[in-house]
Design a protein around this nucleic acid. Structure first.
Lengths: 200, 200
DNA sequence: TCGATTAAGTAAGTGTTACTCACTTATTTA
DNA sequence: TAAATAAGTGAGTAACACTTACTTAATCGA
């Protein structure tokens, strides 16, 4: 259903998404003009609106594309991992590592789309972000069933702590173009979230 | 230094910030026009640019104003609280409660300013956000010195976990106009962050 | 293989909107 | 009270996202 339509993507459309991805490596979305996108792509401005509802919709489509690659990687890294906590660690590490290397993707996800109310209706959100969240939720439930994770906290809050922590660790790195130290950060995050900050 | 200049705020300027605050209760920042702000304020569009560098700068100034009130409240709630972990709990509860009731403030902070690179140069960021972060950092260091908080995690990561968790718990509530259940959420957050999710 | 239908791509707009600037009116202050 | 400064105006503009009527290329059934 989703992958069948690969056969016929018009070259112009490809050029446009590729162009935006390139430009997002240089400047932020708001200061990229549609004229610029078209010029870099080597097409006319009008063509953008043949394939995308508006400028933001184009952004969402680019995010969708990059997010699918990310989920693919996460699936690979998760294979063969045993134990709920280990699975959560794997997800955290993959995420941090991907965020560190895929700056364009991460900037779109963490800073560019947030203020668009209709992002939350977009495919990128509805299939990718929710899918990512669901995977984490399933692991948490599994962990509770197996006695690995305590049951006296709402699973959704645990999920939010995990996701929120990751985002907040990465945000300054993305904004100020700093490197993310994947392994140490993963270790710190896991130690905090798994065992708590309280001296025991 | 900061409070001395209260004496002479031009009425037009006050009308403008008040106008934006009102409008932000109805719609998101991007779909509010400068013409609209001026009309609601009862002034001309040009006056906005007498007091503010641009539309976003106006937003930053409004955030600054609201953030100062928030920090004041936090200081009050923190008075008389003993113990580092209790202080952190107090901050979390105050934050969640404020986020729940001050929707305009929270929406600006969590969704509207993020994508402006120059937000991070603004007064709102430089004095308020950093101040908020510093207060948390100080408590963490104090907690480590007093043996309340373990020393084998980077303090900055602990801070990021706390702030990130709060934001991620509140974000859906803000976006989808849902209520934040302050006490239960605080409890869940503290239990997670203080003691960890691992069944022991 | 032709003719017709659909898809890809173009070129020249247009309305909206953030922002400017030269100006007027009101308020201090010496 | 006159000069100087601050508050406020209003008409205008450039830039930009987006539209529309059109042309060119590809697809496909008969």
């Amino acid at each position: 259903m989703t992958k069948v339509n690969i056969k016929k993507i018009p070259p112009g459309r490809l050029k446009i998404t590729r162009s935006l991805k390139t430009l997002l490596g240089e400047k932020d979305f708001n200061s990229i003009t549609t004229a610029e996108i078209a010029k870099t792509a080597g097409v006319t401005e009008g063509l953008i609106y043949k394939y995308f509802a508006d400028k933001r919709d184009l952004l969402f489509k680019v995010l969708l594309e990059l997010f699918e690659q990310f989920l693919l990687q996460m699936g690979k890294d998760l294979k063969g991992v045993e134990g709920s906590l280990n699975k959560l660690r794997s997800i955290m590490q993959t995420t941090l590592s991907w965020y560190d290397r895929q700056r364009v993707f991460t900037r779109i996800l963490l800073v560019e789309v947030r203020n668009s109310p209709d992002f939350f209706k977009s495919e990128a959100y509805q299939q990718c972000v929710r899918n990512y969240s669901r995977i984490i939720m399933d692991i948490i439930h599994e962990g509770m069933d197996h006695g690995e994770i305590r049951k006296d906290i709402k699973p959704s809050v645990i999920r939010q702590v995990i996701q929120g922590s990751i985002e907040h660790v990465c945000l300054p790195a993305i904004i100020f173009h700093r490197e993310i130290e994947v392994e140490p950060a993963t270790e710190d995050l896991c130690r905090t979230i798994f065992m708590g900050i309280q001296q025991s």
